[in-house]
Design a binder for these strands. Structure first.
Length: 478
RNA sequence: GGUCCCAUCGUCUAACGGUUAGGACACCGCCCUUUCACGGCGGUAAUAGGAGUUCGAUUCUCCUUGGGACUACCA
């Protein structure tokens, strides 16, 4: 065994009490990255010992979100499948008198706590049931309501954290804490420690909020004779209010972001830089680069604020990096089915709109005018201070030019070369602006040649004539 | 309150005793340009405060201040 390098084994251990959020994903990502970097194993462990709050649909959400992001696990466990295992250890601890049954009522506990507080002592369990003889306690446990507590020695204890260095606590402050509600109902700290040992976890990588759980877990480890683990407590992801990302503010679930049109790579790239940074000044990272360069010495100690604008920027970047075809495939399900009648038109639209999108869900609204006739105010056709009559005249001439282009030549390049000749003559804005508005009905849109190309000759002429009519009518009215 | 953790531009961060304190997002300006976007160029903007160590501190130590996590028969 000695001399032999132990494989790195890490775990992501979410409890299925809510959908997976950014905090969870970041923890999963860093675990996964570390495992990949070390050629180790990434284990997913569903910590569902809390029967009240755990729900199967959240377990599904967690697994689906992880899969969507490409964070695939090598092994999967579920704590409720392992109750017998925990019971074994619990029984052993009880028999060896390292843990004991406690029958204190809630009122007793509250009274104790109040008394301690009033004396200015930090509250902890009094140890009242510690001395009840094992046989008596076992007998009582069969019919009385009880919990199981660990006998915690009063000593100083420290652990090594890859991010924070040596962290020291005084176990005396902890007291005999509860490790299980009963033999078949272990609590988080207990089940967690058993599993880490049995699953031969080497590194515990988790959020900073667990630092204060660590001394309890080490106390359990020592009671059971398990070997110590290496820890890495990740900085918290904070909301704009600098507090831990909570259910509200931006703690929407990953599945929500997925629905809103964020790309997995964008989420990963954004998250990996929230608390970690590669050696070089590099922001755009492939998953392979993340795996190759990941290391805990470059993980930040301080919490980081979740900045959605940067996520949006990454998302826009990765959308632009997609091929038109790939992007079209992703967009298909986000638009009315009728838009797919002309697939060629759809792909062209995607190609043109690509550089304007931040989220996939931006698409449908932004290009709706290409599939449905837009409604707009005639004034929008006017360019700066150019008189309406001039604009109308330009529109009319442009119609002639469009008509002069053969159906089979009606493509961006041809349209552009013909129309630019005219535009250079009359002034670009005075020609191109009204055409663009006629075709889009919008103050902002892709360029007129792209639009005409996408719309096709027939539809282009239809819209041009409509615009001309609108403007003439307005002109007459004045 | 107690225990623990933390502190560089608005935000994410680089610098592991010597830099005009660098990059990215956001913002502003210019260029490209018919609009929007993309792209290019440029700009504003930071070492919380105080001691100490040192020839020299963003960097090491201590204190102060500020922020955060935990403080469940939740995880």
């Amino acid at each position: 065994m000695f001399g032999q390098k132990k494989h790195v084994r890490v775990r992501f251990a979410p409890s299925p009490t809510g959908p997976l959020n950014f905090g969870g994903v970041r923890t999963a990502l860093f675990n996964w990255l570390f495992a990949k970097h070390e050629g180790g194993y990434f284990i997913l462990r569903i910590e569902d010992t809390d029967k009240e709050r755990s729900r199967p649909e959240f377990e599904t959400d967690i697994k689906e979100s992880l899969s969507w992001l490409g964070l695939h696990w090598d092994e999967l466990y579920k704590q409720t499948d392992r109750i017998a295992e925990y019971e074994k250890y619990l029984t052993s601890l009880l028999e060896r008198n390292i843990a004991y049954y406690c029958f204190c009522s809630e009122e007793d506990l509250v009274k104790d706590e109040e008394a301690q507080m009033s004396q200015g002592i930090p509250p902890k369990y009094s140890g009242r049931c510690r001395t009840i003889p094992f046989e008596e306690a076992t007998a009582r446990a069969k019919k009385e309501k009880h919990v199981i507590r660990l006998k915690v020695p009063e000593k100083e204890l420290s652990f090594h954290d890859l991010i924070r260095g040596k962290v020291t606590f005084h176990l005396g402050l902890v007291g005999d804490f509860i490790i299980a509600k009963s033999l078949k109902e272990p609590l988080y700290n207990f089940a967690n420690v058993i599993d880490d040992a049995e699953m031969e976890i080497t590194h515990v990588v988790r959020g900073e909020e667990h630092i204060s759980n660590t001394p309890r877990q080490i106390a359990i480890q020592e009671a059971l004779g398990f070997s110590p683990l290496i820890y890495a407590h990740l900085p918290l992801i904070l909301g704009a209010n600098k507090k831990k990302l909570s259910k509200r503010d931006l703690a929407k679930s990953i599945s929500d972001y997925r629905r809103e049109g964020y790309l997995p790579h964008a989420v990963l790239n954004f998250l990996v830089l929230l608390g970690w940074h590669p050696k070089e000044d590099k922001e755009i990272l492939s998953v392979e680069e993340m795996q190759k360069e990941f290391s805990f010495d470059r993980v930040q100690k301080a919490g980081g604020i979740f900045n959605i604008e940067k996520l949006d920027w990454f998302n826009g970047y990765y959308i632009r990096a997609l091929s038109d075809e790939t992007l079209a495939l992703l967009l298909e399900e986000l638009v009315p089915p009728a838009w797919m009648n002309d697939r060629n038109k759809f792909v062209k639209t995607v190609s043109v709109e690509k550089e304007r999108m931040k989220k996939l869900t931006d698409f449908a609204g932004a290009v709706k005018f290409l599939f449905e006739l837009p409604v707009y105010a005639p004034e929008l056709l006017l360019w700066k201070h150019t008189p309406a009559a001039t604009i109308a005249g330009n529109l009319k001439e442009a119609i002639g030019i469009f008509e002069g282009i053969a159906e089979e030549d009606f493509h961006k390049r041809t349209i552009e070369s013909k129309m630019m000749l005219f535009a250079e003559m009359r002034g670009r804005g005075e020609v191109l602006w009204p055409i663009r508005v006629a075709l889009s009905g919008n103050g902002a849109s892709p360029g007129p040649f792209d639009l005409a190309d996408i719309l096709g000759k027939r539809e282009t002429l239809l819209r041009m004539k409509h615009a001309y009519a609108l403007l003439s009518k307005k002109h007459e009215a004045e």
